[in-house]
């Protein structure tokens, strides 16, 4: 059912953004629905009956292929979630059990008693949200300017920014730590917010936004200028609203990256109340440093499932956002 919506939006956005795309013939979205929806009943008229049956068989075979391919993707997550219900000795068994022999929620209770987990959840969440909003803003502005405004040195500055795409974080962690330390910002969340928004992690976002704006037809903006809007006006009132889909893609990329950031928090943060989730997960250990797997996996499950749920709900928007973000060109 949802696929109808998709087909519609697709053609809709295409006709706005559709640089080089041929004009939609009338009824194309409807055509999409039939291709999309019922597999058998509404097959294209021109194919014969035999072809149709063959086609149906092929489709079910493809579904089978997908199902088999899913196993290595799903099993680890499944194992993680179910193991959080097992006692330690069962988790470590060599041949993993598919379902806990005696499921228990005990580990989930301990997640919250051993550490300020709720506080840590909040830390991760608010940092990721601030980083996401900040990155969207910075990337939209820079992407727009690099794509649209011809100012001296634009190319040189763009190349300078692109360098950030090429620097692995292990390379710069020591000098960055020195910079943060000299500013007295160790054990604060500032380096986890400011550096991703302005530094290397933001570069991919700038790149995506620039590509998007390059692919956006200029007519609407020109109309806006004729209506008396200045550059900023055009940017805020026309360009940003049109780039919702690309911004959506940037948002998801950025959120995931911040949510999963590991090396940086470990290096910058030192008190438990300030920890973020990936770092907090490593703290569920017994008295001798051995991991309490069930508690760790319970905490991990708590950090993964909400994000997966959001993806499940938002994935169509996400895919379309990318489809029209100019990443294709």
């Amino acid at each position: 059912m949802k696929s109808d919506v998709k087909a519609d939006t697709t053609s809709d956005v295409l006709s706005v953004a559709g640089r080089g795309a041929p004009a939609e013939p009338p009824g194309a979205p409807g055509d999409g629905v039939t291709r999309d929806g019922e597999t058998g009943g509404a097959a294209p008229r021109r194919r014969g009956l035999g072809a149709r049956a063959r086609g149906r068989l092929t489709r079910w075979l493809l579904v089978l292929v997908l199902a088999v391919l899913s196993v290595p993707f799903v099993f680890p997550t499944w194992w993680m979630a179910t193991s959080s219900l097992k006692p330690m000795s069962e988790i470590l068994r060599r041949v993993p059990t598919i379902w806990p022999q005696d499921p228990s929620l005990e580990a989930y209770g301990r997640v919250f008693t051993l550490q300020p987990f709720a506080q840590q959840y909040w830390n991760s969440l608010y940092i990721a949200v601030l980083v996401t909003i900040g990155t969207m803003l910075v990337a939209a502005m820079a992407g727009y300017a690099f794509a649209r405004i011809r100012f001296p040195g634009a190319n040189a500055l763009f190349v300078l920014v692109l360098v950030g795409l090429l620097v692995p974080s292990e390379v710069t962690i020591v000098p960055l730590f020195r910079i943060v330390n000299s500013l007295g910002l160790i054990n604060t969340h500032w380096p986890l917010i400011v550096i991703p928004v302005l530094g290397a992690p933001a570069v991919l976002a700038v790149f995506i936004m620039r590509q998007f704006f390059l692919g956006l037809p200029t007519e609407l903006e020109e109309a806006g200028r004729i209506d008396g809007l200045g550059r900023w006006g055009v940017f805020w009132r026309i360009a940003v609203p049109l780039s919702r889909s690309a911004l959506g893609a940037v948002a998801i990329f950025t959120f995931l990256k911040s949510w999963n950031l590991y090396l940086e928090p470990v290096v910058y943060l030192s008190s438990k109340e300030n920890f973020t989730l990936p770092q907090a997960l490593t703290q569920y250990v017994d008295a001798y440093g051995g991991p309490m797997w069930n508690v760790q996996l319970a905490a991990t499950t708590l950090t993964v499932l909400p994000v997966l749920a959001v993806f499940l709900v938002a994935q169509k928007q996400f895919v379309q956002g990318l489809a029209h973000s100019g990443l294709k060109g």
């Binding site: 910075v138 502005m141 820079a142 727009y144 500055l157 300078l160 360098v163 550096i195 302005l198 570069v203």
Partner: peptide
């Protein structure tokens, strides 16, 4: 518009 990301870089 490019100042934040350029200075950040």
């Amino acid at each position: 518009m490019v100042a934040p990301v350029v200075l950040g870089s």
